[in-house]
Amino acid sequence: MLEINNLKSRIGDTEILRGLSLSVNPGEVHAIMGPNGSGKSTLAQVVAGHQDYEVTGGSVTYKGQDLLELEPEERAREGIFLGFQYPVEIPGVNNAYLLKAALNAKRKHAGLDEIDAFEFLKTAREKMATLDMDPKFLNRGVNEGFSGGEKKRNEILQMAMLEPELAILDETDSGLDIDALKAVANGVNSLRNPDRAIVLVTHYQRLLDYIEPDFVHVLSEGQIIKSGDKSLALELEEKGYDWVREAASA
């Protein structure tokens, strides 16, 4: 589904990704772990198409097409979803409006009619219930005045509504208390299915107690230096990132 090959990217003059390769197949859950500054968020932003990150080498193929050729909105309509580390507050734009506009953009791309208003509300309310979100959030400005936990739940709500084929969740666990973490994990787990791939970008192992990954990758200085199964995350938690870096350079 997603083939990243020797990807190099920089922001301004700073090279961040230095030859990153990763292969993600439908149904898989990958965790990308690494210390601050290792390039985790850059990877997420490049896949979503943020213009500030210049791709200087390598390739990204998604469902057989050159992903780097697509505009951010085209990537979204093709089924890619990025859960933001810092969801953006957009005062004056109602949450329900954005959800509906996003859904309809995707439906139009797929040749479907706009979603029925009743159907939309019913689905949104159901998804909100699984995330333990008050339905009144639908009528509030997008992330406007939301707490950190509310913003992250809202990201998961968007993901649940858009039903992406490839979801990349950037530090979705950061700043969450245990209840919010469980609610978010519950939302993510309910979306796991054989057709959908999920990439979790995280600094800590904590999230992986609730969402069990099939693969764990360690990112350091813009490259994946070690890959393994979920036991790698536990080992990292115990021994720290220096241990992998030393092992990798040895």
Partner: peptide
């Protein structure tokens, strides 16, 4: 970018 990443 946030809005575009949602398909708009």
């Amino acid at each position: 970018f946030y809005l575009r990443s949602r398909g708009l």
